[in-house]
Nucleic acid binder design. Structure first.
Lengths: 222, 222
DNA sequence: CTGTTATTCAATGAAATCATTGAATAGGAG
DNA sequence: CTCCTATTCAATGATTTCATTGAATAACAG
């Protein structure tokens, strides 16, 4: 076989894979599916797409073998096709944040809108605090996602329940909120609310999937 | 700011980055630039593009901050914008080979065309052989690339010179050829030629950039 | 079986990507 | 300054991507 023909084929095949990732909606879907399986309807609702549109994007992800399908009664649940799909997404995300000043700015602007100085701690720091029992950890995702797996000792306090839950929290300890990932806004809103009420609060920069990826302690059914 | 608007912005920005990667020519350019800086003319020649077309693709890579530009006399040299660009490319490549059976097949078919049973060894194995001095390592890339950096103790034997070089090689030791990366075909052709002439030969699956990425010993001007 | 619900499919038009062509620039050589 | 060469730019048409719409499937409930 011709050398050039061979290379054309190889890079074209790889480009197909990358093309399947090269769309904002599909990236968001992958980010969401890192939490676990979701139905088309749920995916559409979470990402603000019409169901038909979500379905189409899911087809292209499926054709690229990035997601897998499982029928569950009347529903069809999509999941990431493997650990390495999430790993690649994280790699792309980090590259984007490092090289695309615009993306980094969008995030920091948004955070500034939520509270004057947002305290951010990374997974490594939180792991240390957890070990020394120096922090209360709040999982502010929907309870369903908490039930699928969460940081060891984290409490499930979905954002809607936080206001009612406030008085149960200690004022002296640091309250750390986390949610799905670095782009998830629940944690930012939780921290803002906590601070308004005089608590010491911070958000973990990453989300649950990153925590698990790094091998820190989790509680998980499976 | 609206939550959905924020997410749209973030994922759109990231998708721009991924879109810049989502093209066979641009992937090949990144693979090539992993060897070091090249001029537009060289890039066009190596990848089989017209100069104008290569230039356009380089512009989109530049706009995404994936490559950097440096003027050198009359020429303009493009380089990868950082270590992590190569890391991401490797991640995407691996994901592609793992999830896209078609891509894996194209490669294995091509290798089968070169020799009955292609002996492949990975960087880890070669590192062990190198340490025990049990292999002769041939760098079959163009000499210019060898000069920029190569595996410790590797000999520069560009493919064209291999036939003339044959008699200097020992028949008892294993001869390991490597080139730019897993898609580089020089090494396959070198191994085929070596085997035809009764040598024990294998190719290292990865290329020089991967070897360096993994932290194995290199000789390098810097 | 019939009706219901979740999902997919097919068709459409708007927008973006791509390769080619030929002209424009910008810097070095003489 | 003028010529030369490497690179970029602008315009064109072909192809692909994308969201929307409404119809088609496929599995479950009764």
């Amino acid at each position: 076989m011709n050398k050039r023909l061979f290379k054309d084929k190889v890079y074209t095949e790889l480009a197909k894979l990358v093309k399947a990732l090269a769309n904002p909606h599909r990236l968001e879907v992958i980010d969401l599916l890192a939490q676990g399986p979701f139905s088309v309807e749920q995916i559409a609702a979470y990402t603000g797409m019409s169901v038909a549109n979500a379905s189409q994007h899911l087809q292209t992800l499926k054709n690229a073998r990035l997601v897998t399908v499982a029928r569950n009664g009347n529903f069809i649940h999509y999941s990431l096709a493997g650990e390495n799909v999430f790993d690649t997404w994280v790699e792309l995300r980090n590259l984007g944040l490092a090289h695309n000043a615009e993306a980094a700015k969008v995030i920091s602007d948004f955070r500034k809108g939520k509270s004057r100085d947002t305290d951010l701690i990374d997974a490594e720091t939180l792991a240390r605090l957890l070990q020394k029992e120096q922090a209360v950890i709040l999982d502010v995702r929907p309870e369903e996602e908490y039930n699928r797996g969460h940081i060891h000792r984290a409490l499930s306090v979905p954002l809607e329940s936080l206001a009612a839950y406030l008085k149960k929290l200690p004022k002296r300890k640091l309250i750390v909120a986390y949610c799905r990932g670095p782009f998830c806004v629940y944690a930012d809103e939780a921290v803002a609310l906590l601070k308004e009420n005089g608590y010491k609060a911070a958000r973990m920069e990453e989300g649950f999937p990153e925590w698990r990826q790094k091998g820190y302690p989790v509680a998980q059914v499976s």
